[in-house]
Design a protein around this nucleic acid. Structure first.
Length: 903
RNA sequence: GGGCGGUUAGCUCAGUUGGUUAGAGCACAUGCUUGACAUGCAUGAGGCCACUGGUUCGAGUCCAGUACCGCCCACCA
């Protein structure tokens, strides 16, 4: 059966991309167990784990890159016959989603509190039901061949059950615990966030030096004439100070340790303590200690058993402890306190100060460290197991350099604050009884009774908090396969083959999946971590809506096609490295698709009349093939080798470069041009012309297969128009990946010689300013060893170099001499014998002189090298032999050029 | 304060275990209505491979250092 048909004249992606995706869906080829799948179940499955995109966001180029790379891998694996699983999904993105929805309802005049928890969640489900289709539609438009039968969401029941089970297990194993400690508090989001969600930003603040008056031990009252100066960037925190610390070996303050100072406004007397954490060289060398609002101070406080006074409310206003400042916003309080300190003469100095301020990744609010009772996951043992997996190679990271940051992070990891004071997400499955007992249960309806005192469920209260969104993401590789049940999918598709994602979420996501996956399932979640870089704007800046430098993938697709976008993204990527994306890249991709389109049109149109339209694919007959046909076959084999290598090494840009070069510069520029000559040569037999045509068909077929993972639409469309072999499937997407063919080094060298000759002749003509269309007589000296190829390809040389008549001689004795243009191309040398003018034009003389100068320099360098005893003694013999050959070649060239110029 | 990456043509990037003359695309110049393609064809110009030393017969490639750019990590108030 053949689907040979006429292709439209112009390549217009919009005309067919959508329809092709529908065809794939209909053929049911995406799922490993789909009815159109041609997977060989005896082969190991190939499983890609994709980062489920946030349900709120629109697809940006980063998603497009992710989709493209993953689709490329899955399509390649599918064509090699492996069962493939690429599971689609969406992440509920708790804090990010709330942030977005809060703004939406704010625009409607609503608030989170106004809607209430139930109402708010209802509104959230409504919201994501509209965004989810957009997100999924965008992936389909990219051509992503995801197994839609397994679509999952991190808030679906399977995920919920996995979350509850995982947490209950961690709790039972003492790997999850609840405690009051210092956390990162975002006053805007009204929740704690993990260390990773705090972005240190460089800002110019103020360093104030203030005086704490020493208490007179006799009177118990502060002395007006004796004080200790401390420096602070956050004067409002003095309200919570419970000590002043100095370095133990600081002689200036040694006598003061153990004495007491009075904190202004709150009129609290606090001790002066000695602690190693103090840097005597900074500020005054004395530090105010606020254990409830500073990380270092918190540690100091614990060491010295200091009271920890929380002075901030959840909204970052000063609470009742702050007496006269209570109710003021933190910054208003700061200003007021500075003013009041100054008024009472206790503000010693103030100066600008560059510092790092932690801001919320989501809302950009300044994070306040503060005490909260929160759930934590004990990470040390989990991290040790994750680290062991990368160290012993069970999981490898591409590019390997990321293993270093991985090591560092895993070895200096802190416990993970997993509870969030938000509404949208998985509720923490912990219940508390009035007596303070904690019950953690994986049961959907919660525990029946208190674990500590057997009180009934009705007397228990569930923790109002939810999980950090990354907790459920961390279970993704196995929660999506049915865990905690021992499902067939889990047995078959876990661990995954490749986790592909951006390096920016290596800690957020990759690390958590490794830690949780290994612990909960007993096996690594994936064998390879492939990290791609960020897609940036042409100036190397991060794309962001506020900067207005974002490229919308859907617009790019509308303009140039999904294939062009995919090509552009893959062409510019290399593992772990960012790429600057410029829209010219889209043109490259579109032009390439167009080139392929037209090459296919040509091949279809060049079908010899003796081959029926509905012909079944034949292999080119080797007996009737010439050197050009063998050259094409050998170059196709070379391309297969290179693409296989690129795929195996995950060097996908190498794949696109190889194919671009092979299809455009080799197949189209030379393969088709050489074939045109033979197809039109009436002196050849019918069998010979058919062999040429089948060679083109076969080459095209191979190239389309190789390119399909990168540019699935145009290749699918074009492949459908080619004659197929009986064993070929209906769709390219499930066609077999090409097997390596035999290289023919001999024919590659000889045809390269012919190509060089044509190029040299064209060059000489152009340099001499000869009219492009003119036919000029050319005489070529052809060594005996090159004669067969030359005579077989003579007509091609004639046409491509516009050489007519084309004559040849076995040696220079009989060759033409006198005026004309001399051309040297490797072992072939040629002379354009008539150029209309008997004298050598000045331009031509100039060209030859330049060539002579170059050749002379190179010859001198070559001779120097050969005169070097060490080189001869130490370099490998092949290199020396090559140098000798080179020297001889150059000497010959210099000789010929001199003769020519001297004539 | 630690760590990582980058620096190759005007721009964006390749450059495999060190080995002849460092490549591509875009842009540029010149010439082409050559029946697949002007989304094209042909030809060409354009590089002290950031800098300084070292190893080597030989360095864009390996080593050490320097500069600039970018990123990650980090409890100097």
């Amino acid at each position: 059966m053949s689907r040979t048909r006429e292709l439209p004249r112009a390549y217009v992606p919009a005309d067919f991309e959508g329809a092709i995706y529908e065809r794939w869906l209909e053929a049911d080829v995406f799922a490993p167990d789909g009815k159109g799948s041609r997977a060989d179940d005896t082969k190991p499955p190939f499983v890609i784990i994709q980062p489920p995109p946030n349900i709120t966001g629109a697809l940006h180029l980063g998603h497009a890159l992710t989709s493209t790379l993953e689709d490329l891998m899955i399509r390649h694996a599918r064509m090699t016959g492996r069962p493939t699983l690429w599971l689609p999904g969406l992440d509920h993105a708790s804090i990010a989603a709330q942030y977005v929805l809060d703004r939406i309802i704010a625009a409607e005049g609503e608030t989170r509190e106004g809607l209430g928890r139930e109402g708010y969640l209802e509104r959230m489900w409504q919201f994501i039901n509209t965004t989810r289709e957009v997100m999924l539609g965008q992936q389909r438009r990219m051509g992503a061949s995801l197994d839609w039968t397994r679509l999952r969401f991190t808030m679906d029941e399977g995920s919920s059950r996995a979350v509850r089970t995982a947490f209950a297990r961690l709790y039972r194993e003492d790997l999850a615990y609840r405690t009051e400690t210092l956390v990162n508090w975002c006053p805007g989001c009204r929740t704690s966030v993990s260390d990773l969600e705090v972005l240190p930003t460089e800002e110019r603040g103020t360093l104030w030096t203030i005086r704490y008056h020493l208490i007179d031990p006799r009177s118990g009252e502060p002395r007006t004439d004796a004080w200790l100066s401390v420096a602070t960037t956050r004067p409002e925190t003095i309200l919570g100070d419970t000590a002043v610390a100095v370095h133990p070996s600081d002689a200036r303050y040694a006598a003061l340790v153990g004495r007491t100072v009075r904190i202004p406004f709150v009129e609290r007397d606090v001790p002066i303590i000695a602690d190693d954490s103090v840097d005597p060289a900074f500020g005054t060398g004395a530090v105010k200690v606020t254990p409830a609002h500073d990380k270092t101070d918190h540690e100091t406080g614990k060491r010295h058993d200091l009271p920890m006074l929380t002075v901030l409310a959840d909204d970052a206003t000063i609470n009742e402890i702050g007496v006269g400042y209570a109710g003021l916003d933190r910054y208003a309080a700061r200003a007021a306190i500075v003013r009041d300190l100054d008024a009472r003469g206790d503000l010693e100095s103030e100066r600008p100060h560059e510092m790092l301020i932690g801001r919320c990744q989501r809302s950009n609010d300044v994070i306040e460290p503060r005490l909260k009772t929160q759930w934590f996951v004990r990470t040390a043992p989990l991290a040790a197991a994750a680290l062991a997996a990368t160290r012993d190679g069970r999981t490898s990271v591409v590019p390997p350099r990321f293993e270093k940051v991985w090591e560092h992070w895993m070895t200096s990891i802190h416990d993970w604050n997993v509870s969030r004071q938000l509404w949208w997400g998985h509720r923490i499955p912990a219940w508390y009884c009035p007596d303070g007992h904690v019950t953690v249960s994986e049961l959907e309806g919660g525990p029946a009774t208190c674990a500590g005192c057997e009180r009934p469920a009705s007397e228990l209260t569930q923790d109002p908090d939810i999980f950090d969104t990354w907790f459920s993401s961390g279970l993704w590789p196995f929660s999506t396969l049915g865990w905690p049940d021992a499902t067939e999918d889990l047995r078959r598709y876990y661990p995954g083959t490749v986790l592909e994602t951006g390096y920016d979420i290596i800690f957020f996501w990759v690390a958590r999946m490794m830690m949780l996956g290994i612990h909960l399932t007993g096996d690594i979640p994936f064998r390879t971590v492939y990290l791609h870089g960020l897609v940036k704007d042409p100036l190397g800046k991060r794309m962001s809506k506020t900067k207005g430098n974002v490229v919308d993938p859907l617009e790019a697709i509308a303009e140039s096609g999904a294939d062009a976008l995919r090509f552009a993204l893959v062409h510019g990527t290399s593992p772990g490295n960012d790429q600057k994306f410029r829209s010219e890249r889209l043109d490259d991709g579109r032009n390439f698709a167009n080139k392929l389109w037209n090459a296919t049109r040509f091949v279809l149109g060049a079908r010899p009349a003796t081959v029926p339209v509905e012909a079944v694919r034949l292999s080119p007959d080797p007996l009737h093939s010439g050197p050009a046909e063998r050259w094409i076959q050998s170059r196709v084999a070379a391309a297969i080798e290179a693409v296989d290598h690129g795929m195996a090494e995950l060097q996908f840009a190498e794949v696109t470069r190889t194919l671009y070069e092979a299809i455009w510069s080799e197949f189209c520029d030379w393969g088709l041009e050489l074939a045109k000559v033979r197809l039109a040569d009436s002196s050849l037999s019918q069998a010979e012309r058919e062999a040429t045509w089948w060679t083109l068909v076969e080459a095209l077929d191979r190239y389309l297969r190789l390119l399909h993972p990168v540019m699935p639409f145009v290749t699918e469309e074009l492949w459908a128009s080619l004659p197929h072999a009986p064993q070929d499937p209906e769709h390219l997407i499930v066609a077999a990946w090409p097997a390596r063919g035999q290289r023919d080094e001999g024919v590659e060298t000889e045809v390269a010689g012919i190509i060089d000759l044509v190029r040299a002749l064209r060059n000489a003509r152009a340099e001499a300013g000869i009219e492009a269309a003119a036919w000029l007589p050319v005489d070529v000296v052809v060594p005996a060893a090159r004669m067969a190829t030359f005579s077989s390809m003579g007509r091609a040389v004639e046409r491509l170099a516009r050489a007519r008549p084309l004559t040849h001689h076995a040696n220079r004795d009989g060759a033409a001499s006198g005026a004309g243009l001399e051309v040297v191309a490797g072992e072939l040398e040629a002379r354009i014998t008539t150029i209309g003018d008997a004298t050598l034009p000045e331009r031509e003389r100039g060209r030859l002189e330049k060539e002579l100068a170059e050749a002379t320099t190179l010859l001198a360098a070559a001779r120097d090298r050969l005169a070097n005893e060490s080189f001869l003694a130490r370099a490998p013999s092949a290199v020396v032999a090559g140098a000798r050959e080179r020297e001889a070649e150059l000497a010959e060239m210099v000789h010929r050029l001199r003769a020519r110029l001297g004539a």
